[in-house]
Design a protein around this nucleic acid. Sequence first.
RNA 1: GCCGGGGUGGCGGAAUUGGUAGACGCGCUGGACUCAAAAUCCAGUGGUAGCAAUAUCGUGAGGGUUCAAGUCCCUCCCCCGGCACCA
Length: 968
Amino acid sequence: MNRYNPKDIEPRWQAKWTEDKVYEAIEDAEKAKIYATPMLPYPSGTGLHTGHVRNYSITDAVARFYRQKGFNTVSTMGWDAFGLPAENFAIKTGTPPAESTAKNVAYFKKQLLRLGMSYDWSREVNTSDPEYYKWTQWVFSLMYERGLAYKDEKSQWWCEKCNTVLADEQVTAAGKCWRHEGADDPEVTKKKVNQWFFKITDYADEILDATDDLNWPEKIKTMQKNWIGRSQGAEVSFKVDGSDQVLKVFTTRPDTLFGVTFMVVAPEHELLQSAVPTEQKQAVDEYVKSALKKSEVERQENKEKTGVFSGIYAINPVNNEKVPVWVADYVLASYGTGAIMAVPAHDERDYAFAKKFDLPIKQVVMPNAADTNNPPKPGMKMVERPTVIVHLLDKSTGKFALLDWHESLEGITTGIMGGVEDGQTPEEAALMEIREEAALEHVKIIDKLEWLTAAEYCASHKGENRRAITTVLLAEVENLDKQGEIAANEQKNHTLVWVEKDKVLDRITPDHQKQVWNMLWNRSYLPGEGQLINSGNYDRMSAAEARDKIVADLAKQGVAEEKTTYRMRDWLISRQRYWGAPVPIVYCDEHGPVLVPEDQLPVVLPEVKNYVPDGKNSSVLAGVEDWVNTSCPTCGKPAKRETDTMDGYVCSTWYLHRYTDAHNDKQAFDPKKANYWFPIDFYFGADHAVAHLLYIRFFQKVLCDAGLAAEREPIKRLIYNGYINAEDGRKMSKSLGNTVDPMDIIESGYGADALRLFELFIAPYDQDTSWSSTGVPGTYRFLNRYWTLVQEYLEQTTPQANDAVAEQLTKLAHKTAYKVTKDMDELGFNTAVAAMMAAVNELFLIKAKHGYGEREAWDLVLSTLAQLLGPFAPHIAEEVWHDLGRTDTVHQGHWPAYDETYLQEATLTIAIQINGKLRDTIEVAAGTDQATVISSAKAAKKIEPLVKGKEIVKEIYVPGRLVNLVIK
RNA sequence: GCCGGGGUGGCGGAAUUGGUAGACGCGCUGGACUCAAAAUCCAGUGGUAGCAAUAUCGUGAGGGUUCAAGUCCCUCCCCCGGCACCA
């Protein structure tokens, strides 16, 4: 028998597919298209490992599925070839980045070809190719001409030894450069560097607003929303006391303005330059100096609040109160106005600061602990009164008192409630209530919640609604033995029950009581929403309502306005590096920065001998004199080139467009072609949630506004796959030595098909999981079993007539086609594979019993499986397809249809439960009516004795599935 | 702290969305074939008790709803990913 030998089959078909251009796609307006492609890889020196292969296997399964279903399908591959590792390798070894990159690309390509991925290689791109980056420079020009590229001086980290700027991530916790963190090395400093930015913030609102509607994983959408970080609030002006200066703050909670007890400005704030009184000057200067020395990382890592009083006072516009202004580094200069109004009662950070420096805390919002069992009724008047809830703790047992109100509406409550009469303190009222309701004398108040709570309910017996402004207390019972008799009338109403602390929440019934209990023990809680108190005319207004009202009122006096701020900044695209696309700008003495005209692009990266930066404030390009010195495109006079290159993310922002027209030398791409393929139907990746995936959305919108694209969102569906960890449970990485090269698996004889199949079978595609070295042998075994069936079928030809077997085989073909199609529609690769395995197992049983006599039915089921295997194991699928006598490729337009009538079973297994427990099963013919099924169920062997003489209270029938008999 | 995703056999994972928990694979056990091994094929495989039929427990914990809960509700614990002094 012909043995299954992937080493023979796979390279043979790979060559044939290439020869026949099976995966090359041509735009065809008549045909529905699918653009399904993975994020392009950075071709590292270490090649792809089995973790990476998951992403490509998923992409290819989807692309092949739609190609087999007859869609005009394109899937593509390219190389994100610019970047730091190649440059560092050049610095170390002198190997030109172009050379090492080409070598790496070759190995990646070899791997992907050997895996049999169905890319249209005629569309391959390489971002470091001048023919490609010519158009990356055009992208810059587009941005520049549309006012979306600008140069600005911003503060950056600077290492004196490297003579270069550093990213925040390259600064250590000790405040030193990642390359120079020795004891003798200097700390990094801040330096202002002139850099190029893309104005992504212009599109922040549009990107954010469109995010919810994307068919993307929630996780990624949330990350993008957080990253953009839009927050709506108000800018409020506080007058600086004794000066005509104004201190502006941004706040999302203008409703808490009456709770402002101090202000805080960032150490960088300009008010500190002019308004600090002499007696505070030294303290402020010292604090500012030490704060600025700390790295951003340090400032954010240390959550312990530090700060100093500035000597300045500001005037709160809502009540003209004079509040002190402090300097503290928990306020960031770069967000909002670099200054805040502090409301310690309702902001965690302000609370911590106030506690540390002993500043006043003023509650202005009361949480609503509404009684949902007994809510206020509309139309009744609201009567407000102060009340107290006191919780009782038994000192000797550590248990808490619960009040069981028996059948009454109150349910089970914790704590004793009562009104606070005029002239009484809440504590006095509490002790009185305890005496009356629990008859306890030796009681001490030991704790008091700082916040008042408003509980609104309907006192129906009094015909009024009530608002209880509640003080929450905790009292300790020193000696429970001395409890006297509860007054008879009280005892009728409730019983005191003592329970452990962790049981209390389970027992309490009213919601507001649970809330109060949580508040007492969870002190980090600060009231956020609710109704205002201590807020003048705004008292009892809801916080949400007051937010708008207060801003509107202040706006009339010109001291507040609505304001939106964002966390996202503009995209810094400058890099002082060699191995990137040069920024196409020339500096002329007369004309300033001038864009290099399109007909002079690309600005080609010159070859250099030495890749080590020369210590000037720029990349090694600055040292290439005959490159730097050029002429002004406008006037022709001597001028100098920009020596910054572009961030690699700029290159990958538009490659998806380039794929649609990869060899166009007249333009970056023909919008007609791009518009045919866009938006991308499936984009596959496992990284770049907020960088690349935001940038391409930004870029697509710019293209639309420039009239070069039609769809404002480039990616219809994002498929974000999970990681495969190494078998040891750790992350797969070359440095840990726990990676597996797919080539090793393939060459050891298992082949690409078994590997790809396992990559899809291992777990749901979006779930993290770990590699298993016994997995590929498992999927290989399955393919081998399928192969064996086909070979045996081809060798044994004696026809037999057995209609039942033919029916069984036909049904199996349709059922499996149905299941796999449905799973593929939902990206359920693992269960699709399981269905095919189950089919092969069943076929083994059939052939053992009946042989291969039913030729037609066997051909149907085997060829159906060949088609279904196409997306998963394309080589064996194609081989078997041809073994079964087909002459065209299975990979174009062959997907099995299924007939619903074959999906029905003639007999159904009905589960029989008694009181919800499975006791027996019976077989009934499909279509049997309910009464018959139930009576057969009652007569079933194991059921009959169980129901005999019992009263059947209820009979439930779930058609085709189960019968549940409820007996007494 | 906030947001998102999870917690099911020895392991990876199924479960028609409230209806027979553990599909499929790995591993393990037994058997067939073989001089023997590998490969292959067949059977078994959640725990406990039992020779067995069977009983009983069982989807992170505790409550609840329901004829019926892995699935829904409440309270809580743990793990992973992201963000985080963003006012």
